[in-house]
Design a binder for these strands. Sequence first.
DNA 1: CGTTGACTTGATGCATCTCAAATTAGGTGG
DNA 2: CCACCTAATTTGAGATGCATCAAGTCAACG
Lengths: 241, 241
Amino acid sequence: MDAHRKDTRSSDIPGLCRACEARHRGVCGALSASQLVSLNKISTRKLIGSGAELIGENQETNSYANIISGVVKLTKMMADGRQQIVGLQFAPDFLGRPFRMDSGITADAATDVNVCSFPKAVLERMIKETPELEHKLLEQTLKELDEARDWMLTLGRKTASEKVASFMYLIATHSNPEADPDSARFQLPLTRSDIADFLGLTIETVSRQLTRLRKDNVVHISNNRHVEVPDLSALAERAAL
Amino acid sequence: MDAHRKDTRSSDIPGLCRACEARHRGVCGALSASQLVSLNKISTRKLIGSGAELIGENQETNSYANIISGVVKLTKMMADGRQQIVGLQFAPDFLGRPFRMDSGITADAATDVNVCSFPKAVLERMIKETPELEHKLLEQTLKELDEARDWMLTLGRKTASEKVASFMYLIATHSNPEADPDSARFQLPLTRSDIADFLGLTIETVSRQLTRLRKDNVVHISNNRHVEVPDLSALAERAAL
DNA sequence: CGTTGACTTGATGCATCTCAAATTAGGTGG
DNA sequence: CCACCTAATTTGAGATGCATCAAGTCAACG
């Protein structure tokens, strides 16, 4: 199905890239086979353990990455310790801020995360050569901007129970590989504490609203993390969507 | 000072563009003099009255614009009428969503607004010719994303009084043409109702917090709209910045 | 079996919302 | 300039949703 794209016979594509989502839906889709080869030579796969820091004040500021699997949380923190999760990223999202680095955001692995990492300089050179790459970055950035603004509505104007339902709906629709648009079944990628930081609530309020959703049979939760949503539209209703 | 940029002797630049901020700090900075000329031929200056809709469900979906002066508010609305302002835009920001139009956002003039408007198709053709233009758009989008995420922290984790102080600080720093970094004096571009929608609060709470700031001499307000901030750092303190 | 960390549940307080009324600003016509 | 009108803002009193503080439960693990 990629036959129409110049220079991309699958035999030329590096093995690691062949199965990678980033080549289809992510930024690597803008690259030719030869570019993939040269990028692949210097890129490294890494497994980041849950909780580890990917981008922060201190380390690893001179490389970009694509998420292969797992969930990454972007967090902002105030001087007194209050914090807010300002975004969640899933495969095959691009990780890292082009042409800047000091937006006061840290990126942590919410679950175990596999990334494909490569030096900043190499990608920035490719951007100059391939305008299509910058276009992909613009598209992802616009998508993130839309998501951020959606969430601003949630943070500013929804009640606690709508917020929790909105979160469950977000995760359900993002971890739904099956085509079933009516129901979902997934593992929560975030702890209660993370959920609270994402929703601007406390742990206790999140917990209470979750038990309410459970008692009303909108969701079924086992082992604190495994979730089943029998009827997504009922959940959307609770989320005021 | 533009001498090093190819093709931009000021005599070639259209008169209307010469004084325009968008040519310096906005997207038009990516265009050559000849491109400015051709864009200028088909672009129109418009004065949008305070409160009028610039982009919405209904009208004017096939043109982009640059803000020449004034403030534009981007609003999201829920089915039941609750609404949240998800962004404010000032000169020389670019207005309009490239390659998409359905993000459920409406753009209204918060004050009287002057825009320089041009057809969607023309700009999109120029983007294909001039990668630098797409780079400018990416830069603005990244800036908006940073601002959106900053505001998410405000919405999710700050108290009402911190929120109001944050808003006043935001406006003060955006309408501060004088170089004075310590004090500011400006007209509020938003009504109390707009401020409430921006901060996720009610009108009444905004009003109460403003009178508190006034009583504590952090700000002086006359005629409901004219504001003086004698000490910006005191305001920043209140904003928990 | 005790310990630890994540989560739930309960009781209380407070910040913000809601409802209602008073005050002020801005415009319009006399 | 004044009298009036309307919309915007302020102020007050009371209700409530969420936070806070404090136990209690549960599962994982040594």
